[in-house]
């Protein structure tokens, strides 16, 4: 199921007319976008632009107002085993009584299936995934006693254990040390060399062109998308981050308010 090249260049992820609102606030509005079939893709945009929400909407974690999501051309239910999610580190309670290995092993649960304890072989694969991020020595450590960077590595190991073809990562570099950032970049580059796709929400405009080959500029709407070199332009960034279209924003807000609030 892993790294075979696809005969047809199907977009790894495509969304059509995706709209999401939280508490009557527009978060995503009519986003239509198709990712490249493989490679490293950054989703860039200001705070509150709906970057995380886009990833969550792919996995049906937030209710969609409208829109359709395809993974390698198929709906989520049919393609679940080919896509892996790395949530934001802050989204879970790190005080939870679990060890690094137990968390990484969650990535093997789809292979083990329901109602059964995880087979020893699967646990060893989770251990191998921890070793890939240099965390083998800390496998038995309770996750609350790890540093932020180490916690992020555990999350990455859990995602790697999924052995997916497409990864959606929510801010993998948030709050990590420089060593961990380098280690994560290496892992991501290795994944793409194997023909996999990684789509990551990224905050740092300075490093985005360095780490990623493609970009989606997002601010409630999809502003621009394409290869980093031609898309990551000052004009496009200004359109993403600037408030040029005040009347348009008002139109967007009214449309969303009308739909969700009335």
């Amino acid at each position: 199921m892993s790294a075979e090249p696809h005969p047809l260049p199907v977009p790894a992820l495509s969304v059509q007319h995706l709209s999401v609102a939280y508490h009557e606030q527009p978060v995503l509005w009519d986003v239509s976008w198709a990712s490249p079939p493989a490679g490293l893709v950054a989703i860039v945009g200001p705070n509150g632009a709906g970057k995380s929400t886009l990833l969550k909407a792919v996995f049906d974690l937030v209710p969609r107002l409208s829109g359709e999501v395809r993974i390698f051309g198929r709906p989520l239910a049919e393609a679940r085993r080919r896509v892996g999610y790395l949530p934001q580190r802050a989204s879970v309670d790190w005080d939870f009584p679990a060890t690094a290995l137990q968390v990484a092993a969650m990535g093997r649960y789809p292979c083990a299936g329901w109602f059964r304890p995880l087979p020893r072989a699967e646990r060893e694969r989770a251990r191998a995934a921890l070793a890939e991020v240099d965390m083998a020595d800390l496998a038995a450590r309770q996750i609350g006693q790890l540093s932020g960077g180490q916690q992020q590595r555990v999350f990455l190991a859990r995602a790697l254990a999924l052995e997916a073809d497409l990864y959606l990562m929510d801010e993998p570099f948030a709050g990590v040390d420089a060593a961990t950032e380098r280690a994560i970049v290496e892992v991501l580059q290795r994944l793409t060399r194997e023909g996999r796709t990684v789509i990551a929400v990224h905050h740092d405009l300075a490093t985005a062109p360095q780490y990623f080959a493609h970009v989606l500029l997002l601010n409630v709407r999809a502003i621009a998308a394409g290869p980093m070199a031609i898309t990551f332009t000052p004009e496009n960034l200004a359109r993403t981050y600037g408030g040029r279209l005040s009347l348009l924003e008002q139109a967007v807000a009214a449309a969303q308010g009308g739909r969700a609030g009335l």
Binding site: K56, F59, D60, L61, R80, V83, G84, Y85, P87, S91, V92, D93, F96, A98, Q102, V103, M106, G107, Y109, P110, A112, W114, F115, P117, L118, R158, L162
Partner: peptide, 22 residues
């Protein structure tokens, strides 16, 4: 006993659990 790992997964990270179909 039957849902040992499932309950732990759902308690720790429900979003991830949902993303892998649990």
């Amino acid at each position: 006993a039957l849902l040992w790992k499932e309950l732990r997964l759902a308690a720790f990270d429900p979003d991830f659990a949902r993303s892998i179909g649990f």
